[in-house]
Amino acid sequence: MTKNDFDFDREFFFDLLERRHDATIIAKRSLWKLFDHWGEISENRLNGMVHISLGNIGERILGKVLEREFFIDVVARACVTCVMLEVILSVPALRDGVPVEIARFLVAPNNEILSSENETIFAEAPDTYLYLNDADLDESVRSYDVLIAVLRKVMEVHAIF
């Protein structure tokens, strides 16, 4: 920490904290709406070869693909101007089952997916999804794309001891 970390306005901080708290709740609801399609996609499009256990908003997501378990944890990353969600993908170590991080990405308020370095790696492409003319179907397709990226990462990682 530095001296600047202690230079703040207490009243402003409370207001900022309250706004960031509300923004975090909204962001997690939006992300869970995207994740909500994963169970149906796993059953219908992936023929049950993938299992996803989606709990309540903010809880760890459990999954399994090719007999390999994985976990998804979501935490808020607040800055002065916005709240982003940090999504951490991990697999259990073979030795003791402790989760080991294999990837992470950020979800911006506009639903773009960013790398840890804040580079856009997956943006909503209106020209790709608009032809569907159905907002729910658009979200389902986007959800499928995110799920595939997660599953590929899990399938490609080497065994961790």
Rank of each mutant, 00 (worst) to 15 (best):
I148R: 11
T120E: 09
F161Q: 11
E67V: 00
S42D: 04
N118R: 12
D5A: 15
V50M: 04
I61K: 03
P99M: 07
L46N: 03
D15C: 00
L130P: 00
L85R: 05
G97Y: 03
R95P: 00
A159C: 01
R45W: 08
G97A: 04
R20G: 02
I121S: 01
A103R: 07
I113H: 10
V50C: 04
V65W: 02
L106G: 03
S143P: 10
L94M: 09
E59L: 08
L89D: 02
M155A: 15
I148K: 13
S42Q: 05
F13P: 00
A125F: 02
N133Y: 15
V50I: 14
A78R: 08
N111F: 13
K3H: 13
E40V: 06
R10H: 08
R19T: 09
A78Q: 10
D136Q: 12
D73Q: 07
L46D: 03
L66Y: 07
S143C: 08
N118C: 14
R95V: 06
L114T: 06
F71A: 04
C79H: 05
N111I: 06
M155G: 08
D127K: 05
Y129W: 12
I52D: 02
A125D: 15
I52Y: 03
D5P: 01
S90E: 03
E11A: 15
S140I: 02
N118L: 11
S116F: 06
Y129K: 06
V154R: 02
R95N: 08
P126Q: 08
D5W: 07
I88L: 09
W38M: 04
L66I: 12
K28N: 07
A27H: 05
I88M: 07
A103P: 01
I88Y: 06
A159E: 10
K153A: 12
I121A: 04
K153V: 08
R152L: 14
R104P: 00
D36P: 00
E156A: 13
N4L: 14
A27S: 15
G55A: 11
E124K: 12
T120P: 09
A93L: 00
V80G: 06
T120I: 13
T128Q: 04
N133T: 10
I148D: 09
F35K: 03
I121F: 07
D73C: 07
A135G: 03
K28W: 00
I41P: 03
L147A: 01
V146F: 06
S116W: 05
H37D: 09
N44F: 07
L46G: 06
E69N: 11
E69Y: 04
I113M: 12
D15G: 12
R10K: 08
P99R: 05
V98C: 01
G55E: 10
T2W: 02
